[in-house]
Design a protein around this nucleic acid. Sequence first.
DNA 1: CGCCACATTGAAGGCAGTCAAAGGTGGTGG
DNA 2: CCACCACCTTTGACTGCCTTCAATGTGGCG
Lengths: 233, 233
Amino acid sequence: MDYVSELKKCLIFSGLNQEDVLEIAKTAKFKTYPKKTIIFSEGDPAIGFYVLISGMVKIYKLSPDSREQILHIINPHNTFAEASIFIGNTYPAFAETIIDSTVAFFEKNSFLKTLERNPKLSLNLIISLSIMLKRVIDLVDNLSLKSVETRLAEFLLSEAAIRGEKKEDFIEIKLNITKTEIAKKIGTVIETLSRTLKKFKAAGIIDTEKNKIYIYNIKALQEIKEQKSFKIH
Amino acid sequence: MDYVSELKKCLIFSGLNQEDVLEIAKTAKFKTYPKKTIIFSEGDPAIGFYVLISGMVKIYKLSPDSREQILHIINPHNTFAEASIFIGNTYPAFAETIIDSTVAFFEKNSFLKTLERNPKLSLNLIISLSIMLKRVIDLVDNLSLKSVETRLAEFLLSEAAIRGEKKEDFIEIKLNITKTEIAKKIGTVIETLSRTLKKFKAAGIIDTEKNKIYIYNIKALQEIKEQKSFKIH
DNA sequence: CGCCACATTGAAGGCAGTCAAAGGTGGTGG
DNA sequence: CCACCACCTTTGACTGCCTTCAATGTGGCG
C-alpha cells in the first residue's frame, strides 16, 4: 500500500505540500494489528498518536465492573489519541481494533517539532480537536438527557446518512459492526438494544435481517430523535 | 479593572509577549452581565469566543423537557466557546452567568487572523482544547458508567483538592454554587443529590451546614470513587 | 457436525427521576 | 426590625426505564 498517499487523505495533513507530507511520513511507524487487539490501554504512557490507515478502531472507557462505553469509532484517514500527547502522561481510554487494521504511529516529541515548523498543521489539529470535542459533547447530551430509544433513533439516522443506500421506498444500512458494539456506542447493553429494535419493528419503522437494517419511516425516527412522544402500546 | 493584565493571566495567552497581548486586547470587546443572564443559546450563530475575566459561567445542554446537564463551570481566566468558531456555524450549548460576570469577547474572523500570525497562540489553543476534551470524556465516563454516589464522591474529592481548607481532622469546602447547580453538574437532580448527601452523612463520611461541606473521611470517598462496594443498611 | 460468539426473549429488581408538600434561608421593602 | 416572598432544599411516595440474570435461539466456521 502507498502509505504516503493514504496519509495525504487525512484531515490532519490536508493542505500540506507534497514535501512536508513526505517529511512527516518518514517520522511515522506503520503497524498492522489483527482484529480485537488492544493498541493501548487506559493509563498507558502517552508516547504518541495514531492515524488509522485501514481497518476500524474503537476508543472506549471501562467501568470497574467491565461495562464498556465507546467514545469513538475511528474509520480510515482519521486520527486518534492526538489530544493525549498535549495533556497528562497517560492515555485516558482504551484503543482496540474491531477488524484487522493498519495504523501510522507518530512519536510525541518528534511530532511536536514538526508542529512547530508547520502552522497549517496546527490549524488542522485545532479543527480536528474541535470536531472531536463537539462529538463528545453530543455524547454527553445523549447519555445524560436522552432515552435509549432516542439514542438509537439518532444512531440509525446518522448511519443512514453516512452509509445508507437509498432503495425504492426504504433505506438499507449494512452494519459493519456487531449489535453488541452498537449497544456500547449508544451507551446501553445488547439486551436493551434488541428490545428497542423490536419496538421499532413493531411500529413498522424499520426491519432487520442479519447484519442489515431497513428504514421504512425515516420521519418517525426524526420525531423520536426530537422526542415528540413515541409510544407503542 | 486592568483588562490587559487580566488577559495575560489566561492560559490561552500565556507565553505571549507584551505587545502581542496588547494587540490582541485591542480586538476584544469587554462586556458585563448580571447573574443568570444567558450569554448565548444553543443554536445561536457562533460569532466568536469568550474569555471570562471575573464571575462564573456555566456551559450546559438542555433536554427537550428542560432538564439541564452542565458541561463546564468556567472560572476567571478561562476561555469558553473557542471550539465553536472552528466547526459549524452555531454554538452547541448554552452559556449563562451564575453570578455577575465580565467577559472579553473575540470576534471569530479577526481572531483567526491573529492566530495565523501567532504560532504560540495556536499551541495554547491546542492544549486548551485537549484539556477540555479530556474533561468531557471524563464526564461521559461518569455519566455512562458510574452511579450518582460515585459521581458525588468524585465531585467532593475534586472540590476538596481545588478549594478545600484542611482543618484539624476534617476538610472544609465552602460551596460557591448552589446544590441545584451541583446536581446538574454531576448529572442528576436536586432531590437525588440531597438523598445521596444524607447517605454520606449517615455513614459519617461528611457533614453539611448551609453552604459548607465538611469531609471527615476522605479515604471512604476515594473508595466509593473506585466503586469498592459501598452500602448503608 | 458441533462449537462459539452473538442475539433474542422473559422475568425480576434497583437506581434514580418525578411529583407533591413542607421546611429553611436570604433578601427586600414597608 | 420584622414580615413577606422567592428560591432553594429536604423528605416521602411512587413510577418506570433500564440493567442483570438466565435460558434459549441462531448463524458462521473449522
